[in-house]
């Protein structure tokens, strides 16, 4: 018997600095430590059957992420969630757990990001001087544009390749609300914008600001209901 479950969780603090691959390994071990009757893949190198449908960039914290995994017996969600929280490393917060029908394959369609610009959120003068007036102008310029050509570097160290692309259609309207910068990025199979590319487009150095990115919300198709 194989049963699927959907876990919603948040990843915060310095744990956000682990990679997508590390996050998968973290969950494989977390499920085993939590004594869940996990299901394994067949073949030469059996792995715990689990999926993180929307990868997260190193350094980006996330408010509401999704993990889907398979087990061989039915789980009691509340007790299981409690056990998983106990076994979690600092920075991993369990939100909810529920069964997921085999026929449902949630697909991310939109992700909403925020960057905190507020005093007190940053400790050092070298985190960059953000002139809000300049930033607002940059936001306006970006929002009003119909096209925003960028160069994207892809591939590993050996096969680094650069390609030209238009960022604008991949980013919804950017907003600044007091000290929060907010933008939505549609998730498309044909290609999506990277949050750091949006920061760069606004004149915010990704090296200085990308670790302050927070994925606050993800919309799914079909929508997820707890």
């Amino acid at each position: 018997m194989r049963l699927r479950y959907l876990l919603r969780f948040a990843i915060e603090g310095d744990l956000r600095f682990i990679s997508h691959k590390d996050t998968i390994r973290m969950f494989e071990r977390l499920l085993v430590r939590s004594r869940l009757p996990v299901s394994y893949s067949e073949g030469f190198n059996p792995r715990v059957r689990l999926w993180l449908p929307l990868p997260r960039s190193v350094g980006t914290s996330a408010e509401d992420e999704v993990l889907i995994f398979e087990v061989t017996e039915e789980l009691a969600p509340a007790a299981t969630l409690g056990r998983m929280q106990v076994e979690s490393p600092a920075g991993l917060r369990m939100r909810s757990l529920r069964p997921l029908a085999e026929s449902i394959r949630p697909r991310p369609v939109r992700a909403l990001y925020e960057v905190a610009l507020a005093p007190g959120d940053c400790f050092r003068p070298d985190c960059g001087d953000v002139d809000l007036e300049t930033l607002d102008k940059a936001i306006e310029r970006f929002n009003d544009s119909t096209s925003w050509p960028i160069r994207r570097t892809a591939g590993g160290r050996r096969r680094a390749a650069t390609r030209h692309m238009d960022l604008r259609p991949l980013v919804e309207q950017i907003r600044r609300s007091h000290t929060r910068l907010q933008f939505g990025l549609p998730v498309r199979q044909s290609g999506s914008a990277r949050p750091r590319e949006v920061l760069e487009a606004l004149g915010l150095s990704a090296a200085q600001w990308s670790h302050r990115l927070r994925r606050v919300q993800v919309e799914w198709n079909p929508p997820l209901t707890d």
């Binding site: 400790f123 050092r124 003068p125 001087d129 990308s210």
Partner: peptide, 24 residues
């Protein structure tokens, strides 16, 4: 409109400096 909104916090601790200055 205010210029720089970043204030240096002199009481910043070593763990915070590692998070903010090293890890990124």
């Amino acid at each position: 409109m205010q210029g720089c909104c970043i204030a240096y916090n002199a009481r910043v601790t070593l763990p915070e400096r590692i998070s903010e200055e090293l890890l990124p």
